[in-house]
Design a protein around this nucleic acid. Structure first.
Lengths: 208, 208
DNA sequence: GTCTATACTCCGATAGAC
DNA sequence: GTCTATCGGAGTATAGAC
Protein backbone atom coordinates (compact mmCIF):
# COMPACT_ATOMS: atom_id res chain seq x y z
CA UNK A 1 0.00 0.00 0.00
CA UNK A 2 3.00 2.31 0.04
CA UNK A 3 2.63 3.52 -3.51
CA UNK A 4 -1.14 3.61 -3.78
CA UNK A 5 -1.24 1.33 -6.81
CA UNK A 6 -4.46 -0.69 -6.37
CA UNK A 7 -3.21 -4.04 -7.60
CA UNK A 8 0.22 -4.21 -6.10
CA UNK A 9 1.51 -7.39 -4.52
CA UNK A 10 0.03 -6.52 -1.18
CA UNK A 11 -3.47 -6.39 -2.62
CA UNK A 12 -2.89 -9.54 -4.61
CA UNK A 13 -1.97 -11.47 -1.50
CA UNK A 14 -5.00 -10.12 0.31
CA UNK A 15 -7.25 -11.06 -2.57
CA UNK A 16 -5.81 -14.55 -2.69
CA UNK A 17 -6.68 -15.04 0.97
CA UNK A 18 -10.13 -13.56 0.44
CA UNK A 19 -10.81 -15.81 -2.55
CA UNK A 20 -9.81 -18.96 -0.69
CA UNK A 21 -11.82 -17.95 2.36
CA UNK A 22 -14.88 -17.02 0.27
CA UNK A 23 -14.81 -20.41 -1.39
CA UNK A 24 -14.54 -22.24 1.92
CA UNK A 25 -17.10 -20.09 3.76
CA UNK A 26 -19.53 -20.94 0.98
CA UNK A 27 -18.76 -24.65 1.00
CA UNK A 28 -18.44 -25.31 4.72
CA UNK A 29 -19.59 -22.18 6.49
CA UNK A 30 -17.75 -19.56 8.49
CA UNK A 31 -17.40 -21.47 11.75
CA UNK A 32 -16.37 -24.73 10.11
CA UNK A 33 -13.61 -23.03 8.16
CA UNK A 34 -10.29 -22.89 10.01
CA UNK A 35 -7.54 -20.37 9.57
CA UNK A 36 -5.11 -23.27 9.22
CA UNK A 37 -6.99 -24.52 6.22
CA UNK A 38 -7.18 -21.06 4.67
CA UNK A 39 -3.42 -20.71 5.11
CA UNK A 40 -2.79 -24.08 3.54
CA UNK A 41 -5.02 -23.48 0.54
CA UNK A 42 -3.69 -19.99 0.02
CA UNK A 43 -0.15 -21.39 0.17
CA UNK A 44 0.95 -19.15 3.02
CA UNK A 45 2.35 -19.97 6.43
CA UNK A 46 0.72 -19.93 9.84
CA UNK A 47 1.47 -16.41 10.89
CA UNK A 48 1.10 -14.51 7.65
CA UNK A 49 -2.67 -14.30 7.61
CA UNK A 50 -2.48 -12.05 10.67
CA UNK A 51 -0.15 -9.71 8.91
CA UNK A 52 -2.80 -9.01 6.28
CA UNK A 53 -5.80 -9.35 8.55
CA UNK A 54 -4.75 -8.46 12.10
CA UNK A 55 -8.20 -9.23 13.47
CA UNK A 56 -8.21 -12.70 11.95
CA UNK A 57 -11.08 -14.67 10.51
CA UNK A 58 -13.76 -12.21 11.45
CA UNK A 59 -12.01 -9.41 9.58
CA UNK A 60 -11.86 -11.65 6.52
CA UNK A 61 -15.59 -12.28 6.75
CA UNK A 62 -16.33 -8.57 7.00
CA UNK A 63 -14.16 -7.85 3.97
CA UNK A 64 -15.97 -10.52 1.92
CA UNK A 65 -19.40 -9.25 2.94
CA UNK A 66 -18.48 -5.67 2.16
CA UNK A 67 -16.88 -6.46 -1.21
CA UNK A 68 -19.95 -8.50 -2.13
CA UNK A 69 -22.47 -5.81 -1.33
CA UNK A 70 -20.51 -3.23 -3.29
CA UNK A 71 -20.14 -5.57 -6.26
CA UNK A 72 -23.75 -6.69 -6.41
CA UNK A 73 -25.12 -3.21 -5.96
CA UNK A 74 -23.25 -1.97 -9.01
CA UNK A 75 -25.74 -3.40 -11.51
CA UNK A 76 -28.51 -1.33 -10.00
CA UNK A 77 -27.96 1.46 -12.47
CA UNK A 78 -31.11 0.07 -14.02
CA UNK A 79 -32.62 2.52 -16.43
CA UNK A 80 -35.83 1.38 -18.00
CA UNK A 81 -36.33 2.75 -21.50
CA UNK A 82 -39.29 4.13 -23.36
CA UNK A 83 -42.10 1.83 -24.44
CA UNK A 84 -44.64 1.83 -27.26
CA UNK A 85 -46.47 -1.42 -26.59
CA UNK A 86 -47.18 -4.02 -23.94
CA UNK A 87 -44.67 -6.20 -25.70
CA UNK A 88 -42.06 -3.54 -24.96
CA UNK A 89 -42.88 -3.61 -21.25
CA UNK A 90 -42.56 -7.36 -21.28
CA UNK A 91 -39.16 -7.19 -22.92
CA UNK A 92 -37.87 -4.65 -20.45
CA UNK A 93 -39.00 -6.82 -17.57
CA UNK A 94 -37.40 -9.99 -18.85
CA UNK A 95 -34.31 -8.03 -19.81
CA UNK A 96 -33.99 -6.78 -16.28
CA UNK A 97 -34.39 -10.29 -14.89
CA UNK A 98 -31.67 -11.61 -17.18
CA UNK A 99 -29.40 -8.86 -15.94
CA UNK A 100 -29.89 -9.84 -12.31
CA UNK A 101 -29.50 -13.50 -13.22
CA UNK A 102 -26.16 -12.81 -14.87
CA UNK A 103 -24.87 -11.21 -11.71
CA UNK A 104 -25.40 -14.38 -9.72
CA UNK A 105 -23.85 -16.51 -12.42
CA UNK A 106 -20.54 -15.00 -11.45
CA UNK A 107 -18.99 -17.36 -8.90
CA UNK A 108 -17.74 -14.56 -6.71
CA UNK A 109 -21.11 -12.80 -6.48
CA UNK A 110 -22.91 -16.03 -5.86
CA UNK A 111 -20.55 -16.95 -3.05
CA UNK A 112 -20.68 -13.65 -1.19
CA UNK A 113 -24.46 -13.65 -1.54
CA UNK A 114 -24.72 -17.11 0.00
CA UNK A 115 -22.38 -16.14 2.83
CA UNK A 116 -24.34 -12.99 3.56
CA UNK A 117 -27.60 -14.92 3.82
CA UNK A 118 -26.18 -17.90 5.65
CA UNK A 119 -24.13 -16.03 8.24
CA UNK A 120 -26.66 -13.28 8.72
CA UNK A 121 -26.72 -13.76 12.49
CA UNK A 122 -23.05 -12.78 12.58
CA UNK A 123 -23.58 -9.60 10.62
CA UNK A 124 -24.33 -6.10 11.76
CA UNK A 125 -27.78 -4.73 10.97
CA UNK A 126 -26.23 -2.57 8.29
CA UNK A 127 -24.65 -5.56 6.61
CA UNK A 128 -27.78 -7.67 6.58
CA UNK A 129 -30.11 -4.88 5.53
CA UNK A 130 -28.55 -4.50 2.07
CA UNK A 131 -30.87 -6.96 0.34
CA UNK A 132 -34.03 -5.32 1.64
CA UNK A 133 -32.77 -1.91 0.66
CA UNK A 134 -31.86 -3.20 -2.77
CA UNK A 135 -35.29 -4.79 -3.20
CA UNK A 136 -37.05 -1.60 -2.18
CA UNK A 137 -35.02 0.46 -4.60
CA UNK A 138 -35.84 -1.92 -7.41
CA UNK A 139 -39.52 -2.01 -6.50
CA UNK A 140 -39.56 1.76 -6.49
CA UNK A 141 -38.19 2.10 -9.98
CA UNK A 142 -40.50 -0.68 -11.14
CA UNK A 143 -43.59 1.17 -9.91
CA UNK A 144 -42.35 4.35 -11.52
CA UNK A 145 -41.65 2.64 -14.83
CA UNK A 146 -44.98 0.81 -14.93
CA UNK A 147 -46.95 3.91 -14.03
CA UNK A 148 -45.34 5.88 -16.83
CA UNK A 149 -45.76 3.04 -19.33
CA UNK A 150 -49.36 2.29 -18.40
CA UNK A 151 -50.30 5.94 -18.75
CA UNK A 152 -48.74 6.11 -22.16
CA UNK A 153 -50.59 2.98 -23.28
CA UNK A 154 -53.84 4.04 -21.62
CA UNK A 155 -53.89 1.11 -19.19
CA UNK A 156 -55.59 1.41 -15.83
CA UNK A 157 -52.95 2.43 -13.28
CA UNK A 158 -54.94 1.96 -10.09
CA UNK A 159 -53.30 -1.39 -9.25
CA UNK A 160 -49.81 -0.60 -10.42
CA UNK A 161 -48.30 -1.03 -6.95
CA UNK A 162 -49.61 -4.57 -6.57
CA UNK A 163 -48.59 -5.48 -10.11
CA UNK A 164 -45.06 -4.32 -9.46
CA UNK A 165 -45.00 -6.36 -6.27
CA UNK A 166 -46.22 -9.43 -8.13
CA UNK A 167 -43.44 -9.04 -10.69
CA UNK A 168 -40.90 -8.73 -7.88
CA UNK A 169 -42.31 -11.89 -6.33
CA UNK A 170 -41.88 -13.79 -9.57
CA UNK A 171 -38.24 -12.71 -9.81
CA UNK A 172 -37.36 -13.27 -6.19
CA UNK A 173 -39.02 -16.65 -5.86
CA UNK A 174 -36.89 -18.01 -8.67
CA UNK A 175 -33.68 -16.53 -7.32
CA UNK A 176 -34.31 -17.77 -3.78
CA UNK A 177 -35.33 -21.22 -5.00
CA UNK A 178 -32.35 -21.71 -7.26
CA UNK A 179 -29.68 -20.23 -5.05
CA UNK A 180 -30.80 -20.91 -1.50
CA UNK A 181 -32.81 -24.08 -1.83
CA UNK A 182 -31.51 -25.90 -4.88
CA UNK A 183 -28.04 -24.47 -4.48
CA UNK A 184 -27.67 -24.46 -8.23
CA UNK A 185 -26.85 -21.23 -9.97
CA UNK A 186 -26.00 -22.91 -13.27
CA UNK A 187 -29.65 -23.64 -13.78
CA UNK A 188 -31.13 -24.38 -17.14
CA UNK A 189 -32.85 -21.95 -19.41
CA UNK A 190 -36.07 -23.65 -18.33
CA UNK A 191 -36.11 -21.51 -15.23
CA UNK A 192 -35.66 -18.32 -17.19
CA UNK A 193 -38.30 -19.45 -19.67
CA UNK A 194 -40.73 -20.06 -16.81
CA UNK A 195 -40.23 -16.54 -15.54
CA UNK A 196 -40.77 -15.11 -19.00
CA UNK A 197 -44.00 -17.03 -19.42
CA UNK A 198 -45.34 -15.81 -16.11
CA UNK A 199 -44.48 -12.22 -16.94
CA UNK A 200 -46.12 -12.66 -20.33
CA UNK A 201 -49.35 -14.02 -18.84
CA UNK A 202 -49.46 -11.32 -16.21
CA UNK A 203 -48.96 -8.46 -18.63
CA UNK A 204 -51.45 -9.95 -21.08
CA UNK A 205 -54.02 -10.01 -18.30
CA UNK A 206 -53.18 -6.45 -17.35
CA UNK A 207 -53.58 -5.11 -20.86
CA UNK A 208 -56.89 -6.81 -21.52
CA UNK B 1 -38.49 -46.78 25.78
CA UNK B 2 -39.00 -50.01 27.67
CA UNK B 3 -42.74 -49.67 27.99
CA UNK B 4 -43.51 -47.96 24.69
CA UNK B 5 -45.22 -44.98 26.31
CA UNK B 6 -44.38 -42.06 24.03
CA UNK B 7 -43.83 -39.44 26.67
CA UNK B 8 -41.94 -41.31 29.34
CA UNK B 9 -39.00 -39.76 31.10
CA UNK B 10 -36.54 -40.97 28.54
CA UNK B 11 -38.35 -39.11 25.79
CA UNK B 12 -38.72 -36.04 27.93
CA UNK B 13 -34.98 -35.87 28.52
CA UNK B 14 -34.32 -36.32 24.83
CA UNK B 15 -36.81 -33.60 23.99
CA UNK B 16 -35.24 -31.25 26.50
CA UNK B 17 -31.86 -31.70 24.82
CA UNK B 18 -33.39 -31.28 21.38
CA UNK B 19 -35.22 -28.10 22.40
CA UNK B 20 -32.08 -26.52 23.82
CA UNK B 21 -30.03 -27.53 20.80
CA UNK B 22 -32.66 -26.30 18.34
CA UNK B 23 -32.71 -22.92 20.04
CA UNK B 24 -28.94 -22.62 19.96
CA UNK B 25 -28.53 -23.94 16.40
CA UNK B 26 -30.97 -21.25 15.31
CA UNK B 27 -29.29 -18.47 17.24
CA UNK B 28 -25.63 -19.31 16.70
CA UNK B 29 -25.51 -22.04 14.09
CA UNK B 30 -24.58 -25.71 14.30
CA UNK B 31 -20.80 -25.34 14.33
CA UNK B 32 -20.78 -22.50 16.82
CA UNK B 33 -22.90 -24.45 19.27
CA UNK B 34 -20.88 -26.62 21.65
CA UNK B 35 -22.04 -29.77 23.35
CA UNK B 36 -20.80 -28.31 26.61
CA UNK B 37 -23.17 -25.41 26.25
CA UNK B 38 -26.08 -27.68 25.37
CA UNK B 39 -25.33 -29.75 28.47
CA UNK B 40 -25.24 -26.68 30.66
CA UNK B 41 -28.46 -25.20 29.32
CA UNK B 42 -30.23 -28.54 29.47
CA UNK B 43 -29.05 -28.94 33.04
CA UNK B 44 -27.28 -32.22 32.44
CA UNK B 45 -23.70 -33.30 32.99
CA UNK B 46 -20.86 -33.78 30.52
CA UNK B 47 -21.34 -37.41 29.66
CA UNK B 48 -25.10 -37.74 29.66
CA UNK B 49 -25.69 -36.28 26.22
CA UNK B 50 -23.90 -39.27 24.73
CA UNK B 51 -26.18 -41.64 26.55
CA UNK B 52 -29.18 -40.20 24.71
CA UNK B 53 -27.37 -39.39 21.47
CA UNK B 54 -24.44 -41.82 21.07
CA UNK B 55 -23.34 -40.16 17.86
CA UNK B 56 -23.20 -36.74 19.47
CA UNK B 57 -24.00 -33.36 18.02
CA UNK B 58 -24.55 -34.61 14.50
CA UNK B 59 -27.22 -37.04 15.65
CA UNK B 60 -28.98 -34.19 17.43
CA UNK B 61 -28.98 -32.16 14.23
CA UNK B 62 -30.43 -35.03 12.25
CA UNK B 63 -33.16 -35.53 14.81
CA UNK B 64 -34.09 -31.85 14.68
CA UNK B 65 -34.16 -31.79 10.89
CA UNK B 66 -36.26 -34.93 10.72
CA UNK B 67 -38.74 -33.81 13.39
CA UNK B 68 -39.10 -30.48 11.63
CA UNK B 69 -39.84 -31.94 8.22
CA UNK B 70 -42.45 -34.29 9.66
CA UNK B 71 -44.06 -31.49 11.64
CA UNK B 72 -44.19 -28.95 8.82
CA UNK B 73 -45.44 -31.45 6.30
CA UNK B 74 -48.47 -32.26 8.44
CA UNK B 75 -50.37 -29.15 7.43
CA UNK B 76 -50.32 -30.25 3.81
CA UNK B 77 -53.65 -31.99 4.16
CA UNK B 78 -54.89 -28.99 2.27
CA UNK B 79 -58.26 -29.61 0.79
CA UNK B 80 -59.59 -26.78 -1.28
CA UNK B 81 -63.39 -26.59 -1.17
CA UNK B 82 -66.02 -25.85 -3.72
CA UNK B 83 -66.40 -22.38 -5.17
CA UNK B 84 -69.25 -20.37 -6.63
CA UNK B 85 -67.53 -17.09 -7.40
CA UNK B 86 -64.14 -15.48 -7.93
CA UNK B 87 -64.47 -14.11 -4.43
CA UNK B 88 -64.56 -17.70 -3.19
CA UNK B 89 -61.34 -18.54 -5.00
CA UNK B 90 -59.74 -15.50 -3.43
CA UNK B 91 -60.83 -16.52 0.02
CA UNK B 92 -59.52 -20.04 -0.38
CA UNK B 93 -56.15 -18.70 -1.51
CA UNK B 94 -55.76 -16.26 1.36
CA UNK B 95 -57.05 -18.91 3.73
CA UNK B 96 -54.33 -21.26 2.58
CA UNK B 97 -51.68 -18.61 2.98
CA UNK B 98 -52.81 -17.88 6.54
CA UNK B 99 -52.55 -21.57 7.28
CA UNK B 100 -48.93 -21.73 6.11
CA UNK B 101 -48.16 -18.53 7.96
CA UNK B 102 -49.51 -19.96 11.19
CA UNK B 103 -47.17 -22.93 10.91
CA UNK B 104 -44.11 -20.69 10.90
CA UNK B 105 -45.44 -18.64 13.79
CA UNK B 106 -44.78 -21.64 15.99
CA UNK B 107 -41.30 -21.17 17.41
CA UNK B 108 -40.34 -24.80 16.97
CA UNK B 109 -41.32 -24.94 13.30
CA UNK B 110 -39.62 -21.66 12.58
CA UNK B 111 -36.39 -22.83 14.20
CA UNK B 112 -36.15 -26.17 12.43
CA UNK B 113 -36.93 -24.43 9.14
CA UNK B 114 -34.14 -21.93 9.64
CA UNK B 115 -31.70 -24.68 10.60
CA UNK B 116 -32.65 -26.74 7.57
CA UNK B 117 -32.00 -23.83 5.22
CA UNK B 118 -28.92 -22.55 6.98
CA UNK B 119 -27.12 -25.85 7.45
CA UNK B 120 -28.19 -27.26 4.11
CA UNK B 121 -24.62 -28.13 3.12
CA UNK B 122 -24.48 -30.55 6.03
CA UNK B 123 -27.66 -32.33 5.05
CA UNK B 124 -28.22 -35.31 2.85
CA UNK B 125 -29.94 -34.71 -0.46
CA UNK B 126 -33.08 -36.28 0.95
CA UNK B 127 -33.10 -33.91 3.86
CA UNK B 128 -32.61 -30.79 1.79
CA UNK B 129 -35.07 -31.77 -0.91
CA UNK B 130 -38.11 -31.61 1.35
CA UNK B 131 -38.94 -27.97 0.63
CA UNK B 132 -38.89 -28.45 -3.12
CA UNK B 133 -41.05 -31.55 -2.86
CA UNK B 134 -43.45 -29.72 -0.62
CA UNK B 135 -43.63 -26.78 -3.04
CA UNK B 136 -44.32 -29.04 -5.97
CA UNK B 137 -47.06 -30.85 -4.14
CA UNK B 138 -48.69 -27.55 -3.26
CA UNK B 139 -48.30 -26.23 -6.79
CA UNK B 140 -49.92 -29.40 -8.10
CA UNK B 141 -53.02 -29.08 -5.95
CA UNK B 142 -53.17 -25.39 -6.76
CA UNK B 143 -53.26 -26.07 -10.50
CA UNK B 144 -55.89 -28.72 -9.98
CA UNK B 145 -58.03 -26.47 -7.83
CA UNK B 146 -57.80 -23.49 -10.17
CA UNK B 147 -58.57 -25.57 -13.24
CA UNK B 148 -61.70 -26.98 -11.65
CA UNK B 149 -62.77 -23.59 -10.35
CA UNK B 150 -62.13 -21.74 -13.61
CA UNK B 151 -64.10 -24.30 -15.55
CA UNK B 152 -67.03 -23.95 -13.20
CA UNK B 153 -66.94 -20.17 -13.49
CA UNK B 154 -66.34 -20.22 -17.25
CA UNK B 155 -62.95 -18.54 -17.02
CA UNK B 156 -60.27 -19.20 -19.62
CA UNK B 157 -58.07 -22.03 -18.32
CA UNK B 158 -55.28 -21.87 -20.87
CA UNK B 159 -52.89 -20.01 -18.54
CA UNK B 160 -53.80 -21.75 -15.34
CA UNK B 161 -50.30 -23.19 -14.84
CA UNK B 162 -48.66 -19.78 -14.97
CA UNK B 163 -51.30 -18.27 -12.73
CA UNK B 164 -50.73 -20.97 -10.13
CA UNK B 165 -47.00 -20.32 -10.32
CA UNK B 166 -47.53 -16.62 -9.86
CA UNK B 167 -49.62 -17.26 -6.76
CA UNK B 168 -46.90 -19.53 -5.40
CA UNK B 169 -44.36 -16.78 -6.04
CA UNK B 170 -46.41 -14.28 -4.09
CA UNK B 171 -46.59 -16.65 -1.13
CA UNK B 172 -42.99 -17.75 -1.21
CA UNK B 173 -41.49 -14.33 -1.65
CA UNK B 174 -43.14 -13.13 1.53
CA UNK B 175 -42.15 -16.19 3.52
CA UNK B 176 -38.53 -16.06 2.35
CA UNK B 177 -38.30 -12.32 2.94
CA UNK B 178 -39.73 -12.40 6.43
CA UNK B 179 -38.01 -15.52 7.69
CA UNK B 180 -34.68 -15.67 5.88
CA UNK B 181 -33.93 -12.03 5.23
CA UNK B 182 -35.70 -10.02 7.90
CA UNK B 183 -35.50 -12.86 10.41
CA UNK B 184 -38.81 -11.73 11.85
CA UNK B 185 -41.65 -14.21 12.03
CA UNK B 186 -43.76 -12.03 14.30
CA UNK B 187 -44.40 -9.67 11.46
CA UNK B 188 -47.32 -7.34 11.31
CA UNK B 189 -50.61 -7.93 9.60
CA UNK B 190 -49.34 -5.50 6.96
CA UNK B 191 -47.46 -8.33 5.29
CA UNK B 192 -50.51 -10.57 5.19
CA UNK B 193 -52.60 -7.66 3.93
CA UNK B 194 -50.10 -7.08 1.14
CA UNK B 195 -50.38 -10.68 0.02
CA UNK B 196 -54.16 -10.51 0.08
CA UNK B 197 -54.15 -7.38 -2.06
CA UNK B 198 -51.88 -8.94 -4.64
CA UNK B 199 -54.04 -12.06 -4.82
CA UNK B 200 -57.11 -9.85 -5.16
CA UNK B 201 -55.63 -7.84 -8.02
CA UNK B 202 -54.41 -10.96 -9.80
CA UNK B 203 -57.74 -12.75 -9.60
CA UNK B 204 -59.62 -9.64 -10.63
CA UNK B 205 -57.45 -9.43 -13.73
CA UNK B 206 -57.99 -13.12 -14.43
CA UNK B 207 -61.77 -12.89 -14.22
CA UNK B 208 -62.11 -9.84 -16.44
C1' DG C 1 6.94 -9.79 4.40
C1' DT C 2 7.35 -14.42 5.35
C1' DC C 3 8.58 -18.23 7.95
C1' DT C 4 8.65 -21.82 12.08
C1' DA C 5 7.37 -23.02 16.44
C1' DT C 6 4.36 -22.96 19.90
C1' DA C 7 1.28 -21.03 23.66
C1' DC C 8 -3.17 -21.38 25.21
C1' DT C 9 -7.93 -22.46 24.97
C1' DC C 10 -11.70 -25.14 24.10
C1' DC C 11 -13.96 -28.82 21.67
C1' DG C 12 -16.02 -33.57 21.12
C1' DA C 13 -15.90 -37.77 23.10
C1' DT C 14 -14.87 -41.53 26.52
C1' DA C 15 -13.86 -44.02 31.01
C1' DG C 16 -15.42 -45.46 34.99
C1' DA C 17 -17.54 -44.57 39.72
C1' DC C 18 -22.01 -44.38 41.73
C1' DG D 1 -29.32 -43.16 34.22
C1' DT D 2 -26.35 -39.69 35.86
C1' DC D 3 -22.21 -37.96 37.45
C1' DT D 4 -16.98 -36.35 37.55
C1' DA D 5 -12.70 -36.29 35.44
C1' DT D 6 -9.99 -36.18 31.69
C1' DC D 7 -7.88 -37.54 27.04
C1' DG D 8 -6.44 -36.39 22.52
C1' DG D 9 -6.90 -33.30 19.10
C1' DA D 10 -7.77 -29.04 16.81
C1' DG D 11 -8.62 -24.07 16.84
C1' DT D 12 -6.99 -19.08 17.04
C1' DA D 13 -3.47 -16.28 17.77
C1' DT D 14 1.33 -14.73 18.96
C1' DA D 15 6.52 -14.57 19.45
C1' DG D 16 10.50 -14.07 17.31
C1' DA D 17 14.01 -15.49 13.72
C1' DC D 18 15.18 -14.44 9.04
Amino acid sequence: MSNGVPNDEHEQQKNKILAVARESFTQKGFEATTTRQINKQAGISEGLLYYYFPHGKREILDAIIYQGIVERTKFIGLSFGDVNSVKDIEQQMTGFFDQVWQVFKKEENYQSFMITIRERMLLTDDQSKWLLDLMNTILGSLVEFLTKSFQKLSIDTSNVQQIAEIIMSIFQKVIYDELLIKNDRKTSSAVVAGVEQQIHVLLTLVSK
